[in-house]
Design a protein around this nucleic acid. Structure first.
Ligand SMILES: [Zn+2]
Ligand SMILES: [Zn+2]
Ligand SMILES: [Zn+2]
Ligand SMILES: [Zn+2]
Lengths: 132, 132
DNA sequence: ATAATAGTGTTATAGTATAACATTGTCATA
DNA sequence: TATGACAATGTTATACTATAACACTATTAT
C-alpha cells in the first residue's frame, strides 16, 4: 500500500526538511553533504529518500538540471502533472500553478494512440530580475 | 556567427548520421562506442557534437532519459519548443508535432513576469503496443 | 510466531558530463 | 601573404550523477 504523506520515515523527513528550507532546487550530492551531520552518509540513502518523496509528490525533480525542489503547489496531483519556469541566468525555479494549462495538457490526446498518464513541462527564460 | 545547417563539421556529421539511422533515443556513451571506428575516441568529441546539433535543432535531448534523438519534425523551430511522448514500458519516444499545442504553449504568459523563450514538454505513458 | 513489506547502512561501481590545454583548420581582411 | 579571430579537433584527467548488491532492522498483518 502507498505510504500516507504523514508517515515519512526518518531519512525521508531529514531530506524533505532540508529541501523545504532551501526554497530552490538542490543537487543530490549537496543534500548528501548537508545531511551527513544527521547520519545519512552515503548516496543511496539520499537517493532512496528522494525517490519516495517524488512518488508522494512532496518534491519534484527538475530534469534539465538534475536537481530537486519542494512542491510549491498544494493542489499538485502527486507527480502526474508538473510544470516549472526556470531562469537561465540565475537558476531560479518556480512551480507553475495554472489550472487552465494543466487542464489543457491533461486532455491532450496522442495521435498515435498512446495513453498518457503523466507529463513534465519546463519553461526556460529570464526572470524579472535578470531581464533588465 | 551561427553555423549554417548545411555546414556540419566532420564530427557533427558522423554523430548526426548515427543518430538519424537509429530512429530512437541514444545514450551519449553508446554513440561514442559506435563512432569509435570513425575516429571519435573520447567523450568530449561526442558531447561537443551533440551540443552543436542541439543548438541547430537537428537533434533533441530527452532530459528525463539522458538520451538524444534526431528531430522528427521538419517544422521544428530549432530547440525552442519541443514536445515528446515517451513509453514507460518500451522506451519508444516520438516527437509530438501538434500545432495547436505549440501555439498554446508559446503564448503562455508567466504570472511572475518571466520572459519565456523556450520550453520542453515530456509526456509519459504506454504506447499502443504496450497498452494491451 | 511468522511472513511480508518497507526502510536502513554500507561498499563498490556504473553512467553522465565537463575542465583544461595543446593543436589544427577556416576564413576574412589588413 | 600574413595576421588575427574563431570554430573545431584531439587528449587526458576528473567531476558529477545514480544505482547494484548485500546484510540487516523495523513495522505491520495474519
Ligand atoms: Zn508540485
Ligand atoms: Zn533570474
Ligand atoms: Zn524537432
Ligand atoms: Zn511501448
Amino acid at each position: 500500500m502507498a505510504q500516507k504523506q504523514e508517515n515519512l520515515s526518518k531519512n525521508q523527513k531529514i531530506v524533505l526538511d532540508y529541501i523545504e528550507k532551501a526554497n530552490q532546487p538542490l543537487k543530490a550530492y549537496s543534500i548528501l553533504f548537508n545531511v551527513q551531520k544527521k547520519g545519512l552518509k552515503a548516496p543511496p540513502q539520499v537517493y532512496r529518500a528522494l525517490d519516495k518523496l517524488i512518488e508522494m509528490g512532496k518534491i519534484h525533480k527538475i530534469e534539465s538540471r538534475n536537481s530537486y525542489i519542494a512542491c510549491q503547489n498544494s493542489s499538485c496531483q502527486l507527480e502526474k502533472a508538473t510544470a516549472f519556469s526556470i531562469c537561465e541566468s540565475c537558476d531560479k525555479v518556480t512551480e507553475i500553478s495554472n489550472h487552465s494549462l494543466s487542464k489543457y495538457l491533461s486532455n491532450i490526446k496522442d495521435k498515435n494512440g498512446m495513453k498518457f498518464n503523466r507529463y513534465n513541462l519546463e519553461f526556460f527564460g529570464l526572470c524579472k530580475k535578470c531581464k533588465v
